[in-house]
Computed example of a mutant assay.
Amino acid sequence: MGRRVVKAVNGVSFSVKKGRTLGVVGESGCGKSVTAHSILQLLPKLGNITDGSITYYADNEEIILSKLKKNGSAIRSIRGKEISMIFQDPMASLNPVYTIGNQICENLLQHERISKKEAMDRAVDILTLLGIPKASSRIMDYPHQFSGGMKQRAIIAMAMICNPKLVIADEPTTALDVTIQAQILELMKEMQNKYGTSIILITHNMGIVADMADDIAVMYMGRIVEFGTVRQVLGSPQHPYTKALLNSVPVLGIGKNERLETIRGNTPDPSDMPDGCEFAPRCDFATEQCTTVPLETDLGDGHRVRCWNCNGG
């Protein structure tokens, strides 16, 4: 059976500055998580970075992450200490046979020369900061003894225990009720303000992005189709896909006879992409020119869009 090369991410380019939050938004299957996993070389066995580079600017050096071996000592020294990740599903991220405390301390003991008691004390402190009641005793519990919101807090503790310079949060509030969701996001803000951490926040929730992010990258089928500050992208969206995403957000107080806007059609098969603009088959403003891949247009002040008809509609 023949093999085909599928570009899950194609030509993605962005930077994250110290202490700022970049929101990455788009529908499921648009390449958000693959982009995040590429940064830490957490791609599956057959996944490879074939072009371009990923650069991490440490205190005194420039590290090309994309050149490091996936399981080499160099990238492992960065994972968890310099750059950490909050994964989408806490049930899949926590080992059911180890206590919460052991799993939080593992990262600390891997990267710092401290005793297990000191590590446990720090784990208790961060769980207390994250709002876990009676953290000194709950730290010896197993994952099944934690609620969904508490598991997510434990995952955040694992990611933040070494005070990393960059945290990649992949749908950090998925499956949580809105009250717990708000608490988790507020805790992330507090941690960011305290340590100057940069955050890449991956989500499909435009409300979370509006509240948390400084900059926004809108992704569609492996490309960034619009990039800019929150004010630029949400206040003056230029790509039809960005506009469609914003129009599909439920509005409080909508009449019962009013229909919720949807984006027509479905995302294409990554192995059988249409010619030209990937969004053209679903776009209300598509023209004959859209059969060729659109170039990126710089709209000024860092706002850029990949569309032939960026002012359409």
Score class of each variant (00 low, 15 high):
313 G>S: 14
114 I>N: 08
31 G>F: 11
312 G>H: 07
73 S>F: 15
246 L>Q: 13
195 Y>I: 07
82 E>L: 14
251 V>N: 06
81 K>V: 05
292 T>F: 13
213 A>M: 06
57 Y>G: 10
269 D>C: 05
172 P>N: 04
70 K>E: 05
114 I>A: 11
174 T>F: 04
35 T>C: 09
166 L>T: 00
29 G>K: 06
237 P>D: 05
105 C>A: 12
46 L>M: 11
174 T>H: 08
276 G>N: 12
207 G>D: 05
216 I>R: 01
92 A>W: 04
119 A>D: 02
265 G>M: 06
56 Y>D: 14
130 L>H: 07
297 T>V: 15
180 I>G: 02
11 G>F: 09
101 G>D: 06
31 G>K: 10
258 E>F: 05
289 Q>G: 11
82 E>M: 14
117 K>C: 12
146 F>R: 00
44 P>S: 12
308 W>L: 02
191 M>L: 11
187 L>D: 00
77 S>Y: 10
51 D>Q: 14
59 D>I: 13
197 T>M: 08
7 K>N: 11
276 G>W: 08
255 G>L: 10
99 T>P: 14
237 P>C: 14
209 V>W: 00
116 K>Q: 11
38 S>C: 04
298 D>H: 06
12 V>K: 08
118 E>M: 08
67 K>D: 11
22 L>R: 01
94 L>M: 07
166 L>F: 02
195 Y>W: 14
165 K>G: 03
24 V>I: 15
159 A>N: 02
111 H>N: 03
103 Q>D: 14
11 G>C: 15
30 C>M: 13
45 K>G: 02
224 I>G: 00
158 M>C: 13
179 T>H: 06
53 S>P: 12
